[in-house]
Simulated scan of single mutants.
Amino acid sequence: MSPRDPATDEAAAGPRVALVTGAARGLGGVTARRLHEHGYRVALTDLDEDAAVAAAAALDPTGDSAIGLGLDVRDKAAFGVVRDTLTDRWGAVHVLVNNAGHSKVEALMDIEPDSFSSVVSTNLNGTFFGCQVLGAHFAERGHGRIVNVASLAGQNGGTATGAHYAAAKGGVATLTKVFARELGPRGVTVNAVSPGPQDLPVVRESVPADQLARIEATIPVRKLGRPEFVADMIVLLAAEHADAVTGACWDANGGLFMR
């Protein structure tokens, strides 16, 4: 008798389940929609629970294939509550997308300790807790996918979004490798995507048009990134058959950072 393949067992059990943090809007919302379009049951989690519930209802008003849940990623125990909720509802979780983020535009020398801790807690601690809690869940079952959202800022030392944000996102890229080494032998892949400036509504609303034009002029491809493309990268890394890639960080920055 040949060994059982956990991935095959999951496919036979029904749609795969993905948990996306920071999914009420922005890249997280786009990623949740893309995963849903690919047949996943999706849990959209966010600190803003009402917005997460509304975003999930836009994908599936019945709640059969998409639900919104409140989640403070700074609280490790909260990840366990969400994991148990999804396991009770849909049987398991198969994919985690650590997308929740927080930034403050502050001059390097003006960043206060509380501000630094706040930004790092959401971006780095939150990713660590998600990898810990869901990584253990996946390892126990012998199969799982984790995709962390890093940032160009964490690669090139850019401080346009704050030095604390850049430091935290650099940490996310390193944590990705650490967890990839730890969980790889147990059937779990851990990867990251690293977007540059993205064409998101919040960007268009908050950045003056002339400043956006100057930003685009610095990008080799001369345009902001498309969040749909980044979401497609995440969907690919989350796929059942994507078991040959782990510990990787895929760039989507229009050529701003090349290696």
Results as ranks from 00 to 15, higher is better:
S2F: 11
P6I: 05
D9K: 12
D9F: 12
A12C: 14
G14N: 15
P15L: 13
R16M: 10
R16A: 14
A18M: 12
A18H: 13
A18I: 12
V20R: 02
V20W: 05
T21I: 00
A23Q: 01
G29Y: 00
A32M: 05
R34T: 10
L35A: 06
H36Y: 07
E37V: 11
H38M: 14
Y40H: 13
R41L: 14
L44C: 14
L44N: 11
T45M: 09
D48V: 06
D50W: 05
A52S: 15
A55N: 09
A55T: 10
A56P: 12
A56Y: 06
A58N: 08
A58R: 05
L59G: 08
T62C: 08
T62E: 11
T62K: 08
L69R: 06
D75Y: 04
A78Q: 11
V81E: 10
R83L: 13
T85V: 10
T87Y: 11
R89M: 04
R89P: 11
V93Y: 09
V97M: 11
N98F: 12
A100P: 13
G101L: 03
G101A: 11
H102G: 00
S103P: 04
V105S: 12
A107L: 03
L108A: 14
L108F: 15
P113S: 01
F116L: 00
S117H: 08
V119I: 03
V120T: 05
V120E: 02
S121I: 01
N123G: 01
N123H: 08
N123M: 02
N125H: 12
G126L: 01
T127G: 07
F128M: 01
F129D: 00
F129L: 06
Q132E: 01
G135A: 12
E140S: 14
R141T: 04
R145E: 10
I146F: 02
G154I: 04
N156K: 05
N156P: 02
G162W: 05
Y165D: 04
Y165C: 03
Y165N: 03
A166F: 12
K169V: 05
V172W: 08
V172L: 03
A173Y: 15
V178I: 12
F179P: 05
R186E: 02
V188C: 07
V190W: 01
A192R: 02
A192D: 05
S194E: 00
G196N: 02
P197Q: 04
L200D: 05
L200V: 03
V203A: 09
R204A: 10
S206L: 06
P208H: 07
A209V: 07
A209I: 07
D210L: 08
L212W: 02
A213Y: 04
I215M: 15
A217E: 14
A217P: 00
P220A: 09
G225E: 03
G225A: 05
V230S: 09
A231S: 15
I234A: 13
L236V: 10
A238V: 12
E240V: 14
H241D: 14
H241S: 15
V245Y: 07
G247T: 09
N253H: 14
G255K: 09
F257L: 07
M258L: 02
